[in-house]
């Protein structure tokens, strides 16, 4: 078996570039997702965007446009329902995103001809990854790095201690909105390879693994995207050879890395992960 045989195919080269970039972006944004306990929002948003992806496929609308607008609408609705007060934001996320996901499934059943692209969105695929997708993911990656570089200290302050940040001149609401936007962009531009059902794991696993390896925020922000990118590369390569969907393979590699680091770092690492978000 020639390990590098798939590199002769253009679709695979596109796919692996997207997988590496997607892994790195998920790792980078995942640091904030994990430390701010936003993983359920990531999970919900990806399910919600599936409704938009299915509708886009059925109506033959551009995937990024349709699914992006749908995701934005869902995020606004979650905010509106959660602000009613009697319903917590977790319940609001559960209601709205599951309804959107169910609508995606219904569309999939009603319009069978769109089934293939909907399956690709659910489980991830490299077959549908073209030059435009490579550029889109590259754009999302550059945007993430620029935003985090420019707002590093404000994002860190707003994540670590929002109340004190607020009275120290940091616009915490703006930083939170920025993070939500970055999360939505990350999900939107990486879901083709990862798949809706698995992307939330990629937002959590590399960052949680990095947390076990360091006590410094700056180092965590460097380690997590490296782990994500390496998992993207090896996962995609393995996916071709064992003929399993790329999303599943990448997540299984990331989970294995987590398990190894969890075992090697011993009680210190375990305490770091168990304590994530705990005050």
């Amino acid at each position: 078996m020639n390990l590098f045989e798939p590199f002769q195919f253009a679709f695979f080269r596109n796919g692996i570039i997207v997988a590496v970039l997607a892994g790195a972006i998920c790792g980078l944004i995942g640091v904030y997702v994990v430390l701010r306990q936003m993983s359920y929002i990531g999970h919900g948003l990806s399910h919600s965007i599936f409704g938009g992806a299915a509708a886009s496929a059925v109506l033959s609308v551009n995937f990024y446009l349709g699914a992006g607008l749908w995701g934005l609408l869902s995020a606004l609705m979650i905010g509106r329902v959660a602000r009613r007060g009697k319903i917590g934001s977790d319940a609001a996320i559960g209601v709205i995103t599951t309804a959107s996901f169910a609508m995606g499934l219904a569309l999939s059943n009603l319009f069978g001809q769109a089934k293939r692209s909907i399956d690709a969105v659910l489980f991830g695929s490299i077959l549908g990854v073209g030059g435009t997708d490579v550029l889109a993911v590259l754009g999302a990656g550059v945007l993430s790095v620029v935003v985090i570089y420019a707002c590093y200290r404000h994002l860190l302050f707003a994540t670590f201690d929002p109340e004190v940040a607020n009275v120290s001149g940091v616009n915490v609401a703006r930083m939170e909105a920025l993070l939500m936007l970055m999360l939505a962009i990350t999900i939107l531009f990486t879901m083709k390879v990862m798949g809706v059902l698995l992307i939330s794991a990629m937002l959590v696993t590399p960052a949680a693994t990095a947390r076990m390896m360091t006590n410094s925020f700056a180092r965590m922000l460097t380690i997590a995207p490296i782990i994500g990118a390496l998992c993207g590369f090896t996962g995609m390569l393995l996916s071709y050879h064992i003929d399993v969907s790329p999303g599943a393979t990448i997540i299984l590699i990331a989970s294995t890395v987590f398990l190894v680091v969890f075992t090697v770092t011993g009680s210190r690492g375990r305490r770091n992960v168990a304590g994530l978000g705990h005050h």
Binding site: L35, R153, L156, F157, F160, D161, V164, A165, S168, R211, T214, N215, S216, F217, A218, R219, M220, R271, N272, G275, L276, G277, H278, H279
Partner: peptide
């Protein structure tokens, strides 16, 4: 304070 947050003493002081 979230004592499990990955942050060093200097990083805390610097953020203000």
């Amino acid at each position: 304070v979230n004592w499990n947050f990955p942050i060093t003493v200097s990083e805390v002081v610097l953020m203000s």
